[in-house]
Nucleic acid binder design. Structure first.
Length: 214
DNA sequence: ATCCCGAGGG
DNA sequence: CCCTCTGGAT
């Protein structure tokens, strides 16, 4: 099956696949993505409305107290690091970018708490720049579908996906893989009945590899 | 017990 | 490469 055929099938099943993180501007999006590390979007969306009401932009967040921010995000895990990260993020936005979220990969990854994955999400979702953010879902789906090898690093997965998927489909592919991974091809109990990819799925191979600790 | 749209540091 | 940070859902 070609990658275009895979994407067409996913498009049929998940026509509404899109960013599910609550946000009303670029600053709120980048903060929400930073907060989403090792946490479900649902958990993030439970805390961000109150957080963004108190700190709606980089200017207010830059002056926030670490403990006060922790109080808003306590329930999403990694809260101490995340609190310091998003305040530092707001401070460097004020210091180097006039409070605006930049769009280049180099500028984005220079920000506190913003790695390659977060930068790719912001470029794709907010700036509509072709990007392929490889998170836990995209990595798992890519390996189960055989688009990457089980031992590949996330960087290698990104490189292979960009080579196999045409550029104009990168942004859709990202969200289609995430929705497929979140609602059907889940990590623990995937719904394999009715899945159009079972005939070539590498799920068992991936699990066997993970048990040998990769 | 394992996973969730990771990043930073060693 | 490795480890740590962390609570909630399943």
């Amino acid at each position: 099956m070609t990658t275009d055929e895979i994407l067409d099938l996913l498009e049929e099943r998940f026509p509404n696949a899109e960013c599910e993180l609550y946000h009303q501007n670029a600053f709120q999006l980048i903060v929400a993505v930073v907060l989403s590390a090792q946490t479900t979007d649902q958990s993030v969306n439970r805390v961000t409305p109150a957080l963004f009401e108190r700190y709606p932009d980089a200017g207010t967040m830059a002056m926030a107290d670490v403990k006060a921010v922790e109080g808003y995000i306590k329930t999403i895990g990694l809260y101490h690091n995340k609190s310091r990260m998003i305040i530092g993020l707001a401070q460097s936005l004020m210091e180097h970018f006039q409070g605006e979220v930049p769009s280049s990969m180099k500028d984005l990854t220079s920000l506190s708490g913003v790695g390659r994955k977060t930068a790719n999400v912001v470029r794709s979702v907010w700036f509509d720049i072709p990007a392929l953010a490889v998170d836990t879902h995209v990595e798992r789906i890519s390996k189960r579908l055989g688009l990457a090898k089980v031992q590949d690093s996330v960087e290698t997965v990104e490189t292979k996906l960009k080579r196999k998927i045409k550029r104009e489909r990168w942004n859709r592919a990202h969200h289609l893989f995430i929705f497929f991974g979140r609602y059907m091809c889940t990590a623990r109990n995937p719904q394999c009945e009715g899945c159009p990819f079972v005939s070539f799925c590498k799920k068992d191979k991936l699990e066997a590899y993970r048990k040998t600790k990769g």
